[in-house]
């Protein structure tokens, strides 16, 4: 291959790449770089910005609300990820059991995922509200008279957010697990049956190991998604009571757009960014391990 044709191949390749790279550069690479620059400035919309070095980072680390929001997000990740994996797998097994109406079951469990977070939140707020909410009214009729404050008690508010999140998104995980389950060769089970293995044993020694790949993928996707938590607490509790259910993304929004401290908000974004990138590396470890 001579120089000229090599040049030609390069030009051709970049022509294929150009449209995507243009958009990617402008809306992925550039914002990430710009975000770092903003985080070094004291700046609010429509105002002049001043360079402040790493002052935003140090003020962020001194801000107890930042730690609270970060902690809230981490807590949500740690609790919601296993919950969504476990429930997702359980439902997938149920749907995969070959009951009549499998398509209906699968669709019903998946249905909430296609609804918008705004709809989800407003329905759950009305279901969970005290005194007149559907859930509390139901509990009253079955003789449970105490009023439960699902969204006003910090711990219960987290439980409610978790329940709503599971209800909303678990269908997605279910679909991933279903696909994984259907890829397990029938012969595996038949062989085990001949050996007289119990259902539990079949699950432990065939199903679970075969799902390893899907499992890792789902765990990583779910972790990243849980870090992005915003809509559920913002729309269901407003981050309350007080700030006890405020997630990091909501705090970034409030710092940046309401308090107009774009610099501090950017430095918090960088923390979120660093965390998600860390998980990206973990994910690639998984991908490499799979091959």
């Amino acid at each position: 291959m001579n120089d000229q044709s090599r040049l030609l191949t390069n030009v051709k390749a970049y022509l294929f790449l150009a449209p995507f790279l243009l958009v990617y550069g402008l809306f992925m690479v550039y914002p990430i770089a710009k975000g770092f620059i903003i985080s070094l400035h004291d700046w609010s919309l429509g105002m002049e910005s001043t360079f402040v070095g790493f002052a935003n980072y140090s003020s962020m680390f001194r801000d107890s609300y930042f730690w609270e929001a970060l902690w809230n997000t981490l807590l949500f990740v740690v609790i919601s990820t296993p919950a969504l994996i476990f429930v997702g797998l359980a439902i997938a097994l149920l749907v995969n059991a070959g009951l009549k109406g499998t398509t209906f079951l699968r669709s019903a469990f998946f249905l909430p995922f296609i609804l918008s977070i705004s709809v989800i939140a407003s329905v759950w707020v009305f279901i969970l509200q005290p005194y007149t909410g559907l859930l509390n009214s139901f509990l009253h009729t079955i003789g449970f008279t105490e009023e439960i404050f699902w969204l006003s008690d910090a711990k219960l508010a987290w439980v409610s957010i978790l329940l709503a999140t599971v209800w909303w998104t678990v269908g997605f995980n279910m679909v991933l697990f279903l696909a994984g389950l259907q890829e397990i060769p029938e012969e595996f089970y038949e062989a085990a049956e001949m050996d007289g293995a119990s259902s539990w044993k079949k699950f432990m020694f065939i199903t679970l190991p075969s799902l390893k790949g899907v499992m890792l993928l789902t765990v990583v996707l779910q972790t990243i998604n849980s870090f992005k938590l915003f809509g559920q607490p913002y729309l269901m509790t407003g981050g309350g009571p007080g700030t006890e259910t405020r997630a990091l993304v909501q705090y970034i929004y409030e710092k940046g757009f309401i308090e107009q401290q774009m610099g501090v908000a950017s430095s918090m974004s960088y923390v979120l960014f660093a965390i998600t990138i860390t998980f990206a590396f973990i994910q690639f470890k998984f991908f490499q391990g799979k091959d």
């Binding site: 005290p130 005194y131 007149t132 909410g133 404050f149 969204l151 006003s152 008690d153």
Partner: peptide, 16 residues
């Protein structure tokens, strides 16, 4: 003033 009322207007409208 019962605790944690999510929407006082709704209760008043419902004559509760």
């Amino acid at each position: 003033w019962p605790k944690n009322i999510a929407n006082g207007g709704e209760l008043f409208t419902a004559q509760k």
